[in-house]
Design a protein around this nucleic acid. Structure first.
Length: 288
DNA sequence: GAAGCGTGGCG
DNA sequence: TCGCCAAGCTT
C-alpha cells in the first residue's frame, strides 16, 4: 500500500462531509441521482434538489412513470438539463431492462444513458462497495500534485494517470471504495484547484508538487468557457420560461426571453432536437 | 480529440 | 467587476 493511502483514509474519517447519499442505508438510486447531479455542479447546489428528487421519486420506477418533462422541471437550475433527460431515460431503462434495480455491474451501468466511465465507476464503488478506478477531476488533481508534481492534470485522462490510480487503489474492495471517495473529498475540500489549503493537507510532506515548491502550471492554456451571449445562455433562458410555466406557453412568451431572433430560433430548434422542448400545437411550446 | 452543453458563487 | 471554477457525457 502506498504511504499516501492511510493518511488520506484517516483524514477522510475525521473530515468527511455528512452528505445524504453517503449515509448508511442510502439507496443505490440515491447515489445514482447524486452522481448525475454532481456532474459539473457543486455539492451545495445539489443538496436541496437531490432531497426533493428522492422524496418525490424514491425509486427508478417512480421517476420512469412520469414524463421526462417533469424531470426537467424538477431539475430546476442545476444546469445542463440534458442530464435530467438522461437520468429519466436511465430510469426507464432500469425498469424495462433491469427489473427496476440500479445495476451493480460497471459495464451494465456504462450502457445507461448519461453514464460514462466516471459515473459507472462511482456508482459501482459508492453504492455497491466494489473496487474500481474512480477518476474524476478531484482525483486527477490530487494524484497529479502528490504523485506527479504537477499543479493541474492534462485535458483528458492519460494511460499513465490511470496506471497511477490503479496502483494506488487498495486491494480490498470496500477499502478501495472508501479510498476513492476520500481522495475526491480531499480534492474538494483541501487540494482545490484555486488556493489549495496545503497547511491542512494530511499528505503535504509526501506531496511532489508541494515538495518542489508548488511550481506554477506551465502546460497548455486551460480553456475557459464563455457564457454571456452564448447559445448556452439563450437555451437556458428559453428553458427557464417553460420550467416556470405550469403548462404550454405561446411562442411570443419565448420571443420575449431573448432579443436576437436568429439566435433565439436556432436555440429553440436545438432544444427541440434535444428533446428538452416539444411543440404543443397552435404555436405553443412545452416541456416534454 | 475538441467542442458543445447551464448556472451561480466567490475573490 | 468578471474570470474562474464545480463529482462529465455525448457527438
Amino acid at each position: 500500500m502506498s504511504e499516501l493511502v492511510e493518511p488520506i483514509l484517516d483524514w477522510y474519517d475525521a473530515h468527511a462531509r455528512d452528505l445524504p447519499w453517503r449515509r448508511e442505508g442510502a439507496s443505490a438510486w440515491s447515489v445514482m441521482v447524486s452522481e448525475f447531479m454532481l456532474q459539473q455542479t457543486p455539492v451545495v447546489r445539489v443538496l436541496p434538489v437531490h432531497e426533493a428528487w428522492l422524496e418525490r421519486w424514491p425509486t427508478p420506477a417512480d421517476l420512469a412513470a412520469e414524463s421526462s418533462g417533469e424531470a426537467v422541471r424538477a431539475w430546476g437550475r442545476l444546469g445542463y438539463p440534458r442530464r435530467a433527460l438522461r437520468l429519466h431515460a436511465a430510469a426507464v431503462a432500469i425498469v424495462e431492462e433491469h427489473a427496476g434495480v440500479v445495476p451493480d455491474s460497471y459495464d451494465v451501468l456504462l450502457a445507461l444513458p448519461g453514464v460514462g466511465d466516471y459515473t459507472a465507476a462511482a456508482i459501482a464503488s459508492f453504492a455497491y462497495r466494489q473496487r474500481h478506478v474512480v477518476l474524476d477531476t478531484n482525483v486527477r488533481r490530487v494524484l497529479g500534485r502528490t504523485v506527479s508534481g504537477v499543479e493541474f492534470p492534462a485535458r483528458s485522462v492519460t494511460k499513465a494517470e490511470r496506471l497511477v490510480a490503479a496502483e494506488l487503489l487498495p486491494a480490498d474492495a470496500p477499502t478501495a471504495a472508501t479510498w476513492s471517495v476520500a481522495v475526491m473529498e480531499l480534492g474538494a475540500l483541501v487540494c482545490t484547484a484555486d488556493r489549495p489549503r496545503c497547511e491542512s493537507c494530511p499528505v503535504v510532506t509526501l506531496c511532489a508538487w508541494h515538495g518542489a515548491g508548488r511550481p506554477a502550471y506551465d502546460g497548455p492554456a486551460r480553456t475557459v468557457q464563455t457564457y454571456a451571449g452564448t447559445d448556452r445562455q439563450c437555451r437556458g433562458r428559453l428553458l427557464a420560461v417553460l420550467r416556470d410555466a405550469p403548462g404550454s406557453v405561446p411562442k411570443t412568451q419565448l420571443d420575449a426571453a431573448w432579443d436576437l431572433a436568429d439566435q433565439r430560433e436556432r436555440c429553440l430548434a436545438s432544444l427541440l432536437a434535444d428533446g428538452l422542448v416539444v411543440e404543443a400545437g397552435d404555436g405553443r411550446y412545452a416541456l416534454p
